[in-house]
Design a protein around this nucleic acid. Structure first.
Lengths: 260, 260
DNA sequence: AAAAACAAAACTGAATACAATATTTATTAG
DNA sequence: CTAATAAATATTGTATTCAGTTTTGTTTTT
């Protein structure tokens, strides 16, 4: 009995205490020490490096991000590292607990539902603006993105494909020409990427290629009402494919231990 | 001729270089040095103090916020002050320019339009959620807020009245039960308060008391479609009362100098 | 007298140092 | 050998220090 207890505790730790390995952050150091002036820029590099690693699912949720580690990797003081981590925390990519440092966020099912609800709202607000400003050329850009996404899917590059799926939505926000909504969507899309990494049922697809294509068609036809509706359906479909029962953890632990 | 030039330069400086005076931040120091442990909390105090001062229009847009000043006021090191200022910058309450420090944000007309557009979208997303969860008691809370708002208006306490006007919308977001949308709206409402301070035509009212009352009626009747529409109208009305011509500055300078 | 150049002060940017807290490892009693 | 305890280590929180930049004030030059 105590053995199971011990194992359970260990399992929980293993899950929560992923450790940052350098391979997770694509070689971002190699700072050629050409920082002419005191100008920083490095904090942005750290931010992007973590952000991209999370988006591409190289940094799994729960991974501990130790400040000192980044100091080595980027050759800066903790001052800079902390700045980057605090910004990441603000964007809900990482979570900072006082005296416990930063870890990659792992949204709960409840949070997930809230995020998707918010995203539906924001994308609904974006759509009419995007349609109003969509030129032939810009629709071409969207089509290009959908094509790339399809290619990534075919080639089996799952991480890249998820990333491109997000890029399509970001491009739409860009098109809308509202920097506030774009920033909101940016946060939501990246958090959704995190969520998909956490909750997507294996073998399932997050965002089918055709749906984006059909969305582009409706946008091109400038049918606002239909476009908004289709976007909502699209997002509901993505959410529906997640495994969001709140008892995920329990179930997993049970099956890992070969019980039940 | 050079005198006019000099005056113009001085005027511009006066406008942009408001100086933080302690009276602007309601007595927030008085730290009884009871910080038992290293636990901070102070950065939140600084954040709130600035935030409230901006919301209540005690800190006008453009005011320079010097780090050292806050160090004295709150008896902490610049580390803490910087953390608070960076968070404020993230929420677009203040703007940080490299090597120039933090100043209270002064949104441009273009930004203003984007903020209001975003706000219409976010509030439209919030409304159905709020209606779905609105109990009798919660509607009572809304009515109480509207009443307080009316009282503040009657008593001529303009700052408090604007603040309460925002509080009504925040309460609605709270009711919706979506923390993400609530956070978005929080940012938008506070930025709108800033904007009203900057752009509202004197003698105009930002948010008429009756409108909130009528909104509550529609919410109580659970008519989602009508409520969304009314909210949109309400926000458009607020925006419409602003003086958003891009040449505001030029005009003001000219009339200040008594020319034209 | 106006403009330019220089000097001083104020302020921000970033690294380091020190203190507090958490986590791990070692130790010892049961 | 387990469980509890204590030391050691690692990590975060905050203050201080030094360096670089901007602003301000003064002097010098034309």
């Amino acid at each position: 009995m105590w053995l199971i207890c011990l194992l359970l505790r260990k399992m929980r730790k293993m899950r929560e205490m992923n450790v940052l390995s350098e391979s997770m952050l694509e070689a971002a150091s190699h700072t050629p020490v050409l920082t002419k002036r005191g100008l920083s820029d490095v904090d942005k590099k750290i931010y992007d490096s973590v952000f991209n690693a999370v988006m591409n699912q190289r940094l799994p949720p729960g991974t501990k991000l130790t400040e000192a580690h980044f100091c080595e990797l980027f050759n800066v003081s903790r001052t800079i590292v902390r700045k980057a981590l605090q910004r990441l925390a603000y964007d809900h990519i990482v979570v900072i607990k006082p005296n416990h440092g930063a870890t990659v966020a792992s949204p709960t099912p409840q949070e997930t539902r809230e995020i998707f609800t918010a995203r539906r709202g924001v994308e609904a607000a974006i759509m009419p603006l995007a349609i109003a400003r969509a030129s032939k050329a810009q629709i071409g850009v969207l089509r290009k993105l959908a094509k790339d996404e399809h290619a990534a899917f075919e080639s089996g590059d799952r991480a890249n494909w998820i990333s491109l799926g997000g890029a399509f939505h970001i491009a739409l926000a860009e098109l809308a020409g509202n920097s506030v909504l774009k920033r909101f969507l940016n946060e939501l899309v990246s958090r959704c990427s995190l969520i998909i990494a956490l909750y997507e049922l294996p073998g399932n697809v997050a965002c089918s290629h055709d749906e984006h294509d059909r969305l582009i068609d409706v946008i091109a036809s400038r049918n606002v009402e239909q476009a908004v509706k289709m976007m909502e359906q699209h997002l509901l479909a993505i959410e529906g494919k997640l495994n969001l029962n709140d008892e995920k953890e329990k179930i997993n632990l049970a099956e890992i231990l070969g019980l039940a």
